[in-house]
Design a protein around this nucleic acid. Structure first.
Lengths: 222, 222
DNA sequence: CGCCACCTGTCACCAACCTGTCACCTTCCC
DNA sequence: GGGAAGGTGACAGGTTGGTGACAGGTGGCG
């Protein structure tokens, strides 16, 4: 496994290297944002350990840029800050785990092992179907890269369908997604399905009903 | 998505439910080790949120047992203990992530999203026979990956036959499955067998009658 | 504040489909 | 042949989903 460590504290960087290399990994260390970006442009890694407190830029930006161009390499964030908001934004930007300094080497090893184990079968953050794309991190849906300006409820419905792309989105799940626990006293879901169908006309996609089960987004051809 | 929450603090359990259900999930809550084990024996979930501080047993044992029998359902550990050793052993036993209480709902959501994103293409409690496949979790049947849009009763019948795949499904069991205890006043079962036969025509499968006993799903060749 | 555009949930009504029953037929076994 | 078990087409009624219309709500804007 190839690991990329982005860490400016030489002491920490070396101890990371000493902990991880013996597990059978090749470890590359960079101490600046710029070097790391350059390395990531032509190199692939199995895991990135990213210190948020970089000397020449914000680590979250580097992460965001990585994800923006579709790179799904697992990222483990290392940081001295441990405010919950930072953690959340790191995770929502597509980080896979978070470790606040100081941390024990044993814990680091366990988390690295867990991430590498997972990365065998992971998928892109963004959900795509046909020319449609939905990014759960930002909650935005696009069609051919054009942002879809849908009313909230219709967007929720579309998200729900995309989350189950390729299979049937259970009616109940969609209802909960649109209306939460507010019992909605009528056929509101059908109404929104009907509305969304109109919007999708001509997009090459359609919503198919599975009686008693739910709905599925699929190619109009079928 | 089906989530299993194993948590004995009712307050926390409810807030987990309220946070996660609106994301489109079905949430089952159990407050004891024993109940959770029982549920896991016949049910599959997409994610398990496991409180380590269970009243009637060690959560780590439950996790270990799960992994031992090859179940790879993602597990997110919740716990008040934040000793590093616990965390490490949780991760090494096959947990996928770890959240120490108290945690913010936003962080919980972010982690649940991250885990579910990853496990999108798993879930396997499915019954198969030939090119037929039935997923009890969603209630959907597929034939060569094409979804079969079957009415509920026919689906129940198919499921009943699949449950006894390779052997004879007793008539009585099928009747109970389709109609429950409502005595159904005529040859309804035969009617559904007949309907299902029509659908299976050309599938390479057939339903064979065993007079006085029941029906068996088998290859048409036989 | 008043106007307007738009989003929302509800309803009425329609269409499609599912369901149980019956009548009548076939198959099996003695 | 005769009886019992099973098979199947048709049908009436019920249930579920689809859609246009509408009234109330919300937020922007002058």
């Amino acid at each position: 496994m190839r690991l990329l460590v982005i860490e400016d504290d030489a002491l920490i960087a070396r101890s990371l290297e000493r902990a991880l290399a013996p597990l059978g990994n090749t470890v590359e260390v960079f101490s600046t944002h710029a070097e790391a970006r350059a390395a990531l442009r032509h190199d692939r890694f199995d895991l990135i350990l990213l210190d948020l407190g970089l000397p020449d830029g914000d680590g979250l930006e580097l992460l965001a840029a990585l994800r923006d161009r579709g790179d799904t390499t697992p990222v483990l964030i290392l940081t001295a800050r441990d405010g919950i908001d930072d953690r959340v934004s790191g995770l929502d930007l597509g980080a896979d785990d978070y470790l606040a300094k100081p941390f024990s080497i044993a814990e680091l090893e366990a988390r690295v092992r867990a991430l590498l184990r997972r990365s065998q079968q992971r998928s892109d953050n963004r959900l795509r179907y046909g020319r449609l794309c939905f990014d759960p991190a930002t909650g935005a849906a696009t069609f051919d890269d054009a942002t879809l300006a849908l009313p909230r409820r219709e967007l929720l419905l579309l998200e729900g369908l995309l989350l189950h792309a390729g299979s049937i989105a259970p009616r109940e799940a969609l209802e909960r997604r649109l209306f939460g626990f507010d019992e909605v006293g009528s056929n509101a879901l059908e109404v929104y399905v009907s509305r969304l169908r109109k919007r999708l006309a001509g997009s090459g996609l359609q919503i198919r009903t599975f009686r008693g089960l739910g709905y599925r987004l699929e190619d109009a051809a079928e």
